[in-house]
Design a binder for these strands. Sequence first.
DNA 1: GTTGACCTTTACGGAAACGTAAAGTAAGCG
DNA 2: CGCTTACTTTACGTTTCCGTAAAGGTCAAC
Lengths: 132, 132
Amino acid sequence: MLQHKTHYSIGELCDEFGVTARALRFYEDEELIAPERRGTQRLYTDRDRARLAWILRGKRVGLSLAEIKELLDLYDIGDGRRTQRLKTVERCQARVDSLRRQQIDIDATIKELEGFINLVKAQDSEQSAQEK
Amino acid sequence: MLQHKTHYSIGELCDEFGVTARALRFYEDEELIAPERRGTQRLYTDRDRARLAWILRGKRVGLSLAEIKELLDLYDIGDGRRTQRLKTVERCQARVDSLRRQQIDIDATIKELEGFINLVKAQDSEQSAQEK
DNA sequence: GTTGACCTTTACGGAAACGTAAAGTAAGCG
DNA sequence: CGCTTACTTTACGTTTCCGTAAAGGTCAAC
């Protein structure tokens, strides 16, 4: 059975995700990941790896590290008591709503850019017609 | 005929768009807008107003002011010569592609968050069933 | 004529997200 | 043993996007 590694060094994760070690250590400082240690070296587990993937995607969609941390923390408190869980759902829902609004803005921006692209292209074929 | 204003003070624009005067002056410093002057006061035209709207939406979708400036500048060089226009199209297209990738990331993030929300909700109704 | 609202410039301050240099440790290899 | 490579910590530097005084100009209203 092909079993993938269960532990990664900082360098391995850097290569895999295309980030610097500095960034990983920074995320650790900010408590977004908490790798184990073998002596002084960091040992990242699959869980850390998954969290890192989450972090990076969060960044790509424009979340701040603080926001990402909040969501990751929420993920970890699936247990907690009732009021706690309701708050969790609330916060997540708010984020979803915000992302939805962002989708709309991005849609509009794409459309505007494409409209402009077509305009410039049209102007271009106009001129190449003149140039005959 | 109802004709809307053709000039706005800095305060009016601030109120309308919910930004500070500091921000508008900063955008001007960075050459994203260039309002006229009546003496020392800034007079924003409809064009400035439209550019500001563009800037703010750009920000909401995660573009830096530098990126926004580049796109706004491209808008202004619809003329230029052929190679110039081709470059314009290229740069715009790259932005569109990047925004498309961002859409995908946002989609995934939303789905993940909603999955988690449902999970927590399920866990919640489970417990309220137990509590009977 | 002075008060108040709104505007101006200049300039220092500050959070976010790392970059980057400095200096040291730990392990494997010939 | 010395060398290399990968790792460590500490700490100051950098960029972006403004916030926040400080100090003053302008113009209408009372």
